[in-house]
Amino acid sequence: MSKDMRRDFTDRADLIRYVGEQFPEAAARDGRVSPIRGGRRAAEVQLNRLETHRYATTRNFLNGSVSRLSPYIRYGVLNLAQVRDWVLARATPHQCEKFVNELGWRDYWQRLYLKLGQGIWEDREPYKTGYSPQHYQDTLPEDIQSGTTGLVCMDVFSQELKIQGYLHNHARMWLAAYLVHWRHLRWQTGAKWFLEHLIDGDPASNNLSWQWVASTFGAKPYFFNRENLERYTAGLYCRRCPLYGHCAFEGSYDDLAHNLFPRNESPTAQPGRKPKAKRR
């Protein structure tokens, strides 16, 4: 029998110290801790910040009014029905439509997980990129890990993933697309990296979203161009990027499709600029 682990702590620092001592392998890999706090109380604080009425129009922007409830929902600290009931009690169903639809994505992935089990780690369908699965490499490139690609956006996302354990949905999509379509990384390797760090890391939501980006669960690969990233980040990264104007994401969607998926005779890749394509 293992002995009981501690439950009483003087403060957060005390708890963090203890967890670090108890899980030295994790602490040795990366001793940093997210500012995102666990627990139902913290979840309720976050829920009370939700601006449902601004959600639909701003959610695609990095500084938009997203809920940041995913870590609590992931661990069932709050369940989807509770969150849904909370928003429906405070706004009209119509005002909540987009938000409840997003909650639906989680329910959908969970239902698929129940059906597929470990199958969420396998390509659900062939890639629609013109490449076979063997084309993609297994090792996460060092410059991605360390956030030293030179692309300010991707380097910031990599750092945020490791430090905060949270990335905005759009940043997850861009980073995943960059890794799979520009760096030819197997989506499984990227997915595992995300799961190590995301506080809301969930095998179903994560892996199936990676598959959607990669095109192994969906009709087309997801990709984006600089204009799209610049718009939804309000130029935050592009403005200070030395590669601005000649980065890997420059060009029209047709040009990029041609470069990224040259083996596709008739490019089927769907650009990511419009919410429909971008957001499934």
Partner: peptide, 29 residues
Amino acid sequence: LLAEWQLSLKRLVFIYECLVELPVVIRRG
């Protein structure tokens, strides 16, 4: 799971903070 997932310290801390608000005995094995 700990061996398989290689969860980072920040994920473990988050879970631990959730646990201390619950009436549970915490063990490992």
